[in-house]
Amino acid sequence: MQKRLFILAALFLLAAPMFAQKYFTRDGKVKFFSDASMEKIEAVNKSATAVLDAATGKMEWKVLIKGFLFEKALMQEHFNENYLESSKYPNATFKGEITNLKEVNLGKDGSYTAKVKGRMNIHGVEKDVETTGTVKVSGGAIAIHSGFPVKCSDYNIRIEAAKVSNISNEIKVTVDATLNPMK
């Protein structure tokens, strides 16, 4: 009887990590960089959220546009009012999944290259996107890094002719987040 109880308890302990399959962070970093001939512009948001379902590889990211901090107040103002229209479209999201989950063992420490596919929503415009990123699993946490270009014209963000030498149409975006098991 005792032996049976012991085996049952052991089975439960082994199965426990299987239940904690969702990973989350509210401290994701999203940075972007515009490299135009006349001007370089950089901004960062350190409060992006990300949820990853380790069983399916599905993930969701969300970042609030008004939370991007720029070096210059005027740039931040223009970014919000003229380009991203953040009062109308307060957030940007990505919903997608890791498509090569067979090669990315989220249950085992290591560094993997993940292929990701999904839908990005910026400025109220939704687009299919695909990119790759690195996934580092260590001690139960999952660190994700990725970088990809975002074209303003794809998301209906209009840059006036007078500003084309100040603002690049192709913005370099990087995302960094360390996700922990959801309690």
Partner: peptide
């Protein structure tokens, strides 16, 4: 400054 709802209500 209130930036909106992202699971939490965020202030920057």
């Amino acid at each position: 400054i209130c930036t909106g709802l992202n699971f939490d209500v965020q202030l920057t």
